[in-house]
């Protein structure tokens, strides 16, 4: 049976009284404490009436105000409901718990978010750059990123 985000939020609140879980009406989405996210994720995946078996998308966002956000879009093939979960972290200490072992989709998506935005996923077993070369410096999708003049002796700007 499909649930609304609000109902899911109430379920989470009841299940985890000591983890800070917030609800954002505007999107609607659930905001979870970054370092407790994996516990919540496991619950979301395994609880019988939730069954979020697939992670559609995981994106990193640079808010531009000193915060980075890791956004997960979850989907349940069994119950046909969806949910958006966000973890907000400060840009100078961007640590989010990895859910790579909960949904394997997250493996590459987290690597991408690390590569392009710079969010560090704690507990990820293979957190390397994925799209950019391994010797690249900086995270290009940050709002304050500046393109280097040269890369390995090749001129980069036009």
């Amino acid at each position: 049976m499909a649930l609304e985000p609000k109902e899911i939020y109430e379920k989470l609140q009841a299940a985890f009284p000591d983890i800070s879980v917030e609800f954002d009406e505007a999107v609607p989405c659930i905001i979870v404490e970054p370092m407790k996210w994996k516990t919540v994720a496991l619950f979301l995946r395994d609880a019988d009436d939730l069954k979020f078996d697939s992670l559609m998308c995981l994106s990193g966002v640079d808010n531009g105000d000193g915060n980075l956000v890791s956004v997960c879009h979850l989907d349940s093939l069994a119950h046909r409901h969806k949910l958006t979960v966000k973890c907000v972290v400060p840009a100078d200490d961007p640590k989010v718990e990895s859910v790579e072992q909960v949904w394997r989709t997250a493996d590459w998506h987290e690597r991408e978010a690390y590569d392009l935005i710079g969010i560090e996923y704690v507990g990820h077993r293979d957190l390397r750059r994925i799209l950019m070369p391994y010797d690249w410096t900086g995270h290009p999708l940050c709002k304050d990123y500046e393109v280097p003049e040269f890369y390995n002796g090749i001129k980069v700007p036009y």
Partner: peptide, 20 residues
């Protein structure tokens, strides 16, 4: 030839293969 549609913001695109 020159980077094409990615000439301006393509931080990872080589702007023309004649550079190498």
């Amino acid at each position: 030839n020159c980077g094409g549609p990615y000439w301006n913001y393509g931080y990872h695109v080589l702007k023309g293969v004649d550079r190498v």
